[in-house]
Design a protein around this nucleic acid. Structure first.
Lengths: 146, 146
DNA sequence: ACGAGATAGTCAGTGTACTGAGTAATTTGA
DNA sequence: TCAAATTACTCAGTACACTGACTATCTCGT
């Protein structure tokens, strides 16, 4: 069996794309706050008081990973985490003052980040790309919770 | 600052896409051999005797990650690793008999994997998607080695 | 021929990302 | 009502993926 050309394999391309994005993020957006951390912060900026499970659902992270990301955000004082008095199983998450400051500051930079990332495509291609990415990602995620 | 809609952020979508791909890979292609491991195996199937650096360059992995992936492939008896007698810095990598068998078996399944993954798009959209993915990934990778 | 610089690989440390097992709390149903 | 099922979270284990520091080896210019 000869070697395959992985440049036609969407999964392989997705991995390379994501890796390149992570590196670019460090230089363009933040060295301290990672992209998943920002995603969690962003979810809480819109709806403070969510529990970990809900946050995970909204940003696309499983329970264990959310727990780790949240732990780091709490360590850095960007998020507060307290036991829900109504339901002892849940942890209620809230952004701190500092967390909202960081979220505000980084939000602008993510716009620049997206521009740089999509620069090789023209305007039409950019919206096509985003739409196709969304459809494939949504469908692939649905395959595991039928 | 209100919450952003991350579904328009290519980086966020890339992460979700890659995660969904990894999960799908486990059920469709292999539980033992991961997608990066297959990529390395595939690179060696086409050109036995490469060193780690070259393999990493071809599949898009840095030196440390290649080292770890190769270690696992060696542990599982799919790849042989020996010091280059000509250049003592290099490790020369070769697929084993078993490694070639595994590569052959999984190659067919990756085709099925790609089909399932791209199923939500029609034929035209699929080739557009692959082309745009490639261009963005290539460009993003170039941003770090000017 | 030989020292400065380049190169290949290792190692430690950090940060996702998942599974499977386990714990504590809540909800459900007979 | 109270045992069974469900749910939220934690923890241990595995596997990428990167940086920065270090070692060993090779190469090139003088």
């Amino acid at each position: 069996m000869p070697a395959l050309d992985l440049s036609t394999h969407p999964g392989h391309l997705a991995r390379r794309l994501q890796q390149a994005h992570t590196l670019l993020w460090h230089t363009v957006v933040s060295e301290d706050v990672t992209s998943p951390q920002f995603a969690v912060l962003n979810a809480l900026a819109g709806a403070d008081g969510l529990d970990q499970r809900t946050v995970g659902e909204r940003v696309g992270l499983d329970r264990s990973t959310v727990a780790e990301v949240v732990r780091r955000l709490v360590d850095r004082g960007l998020v507060d985490k307290v036991r829900d008095t109504k339901d002892g199983r849940r942890s209620v998450l809230r952004t701190t003052e500092e967390g909202r400051r960081v979220h505000r500051r980084l939000s602008g930079r993510t716009a620049r980040m997206n521009q740089i990332f999509l620069a090789p495509l023209d305007a039409d291609e950019q919206s096509t790309f985003l739409e196709l990415l969304q459809r494939v990602a949504d469908a692939a995620e649905d395959l595991r919770t039928p």
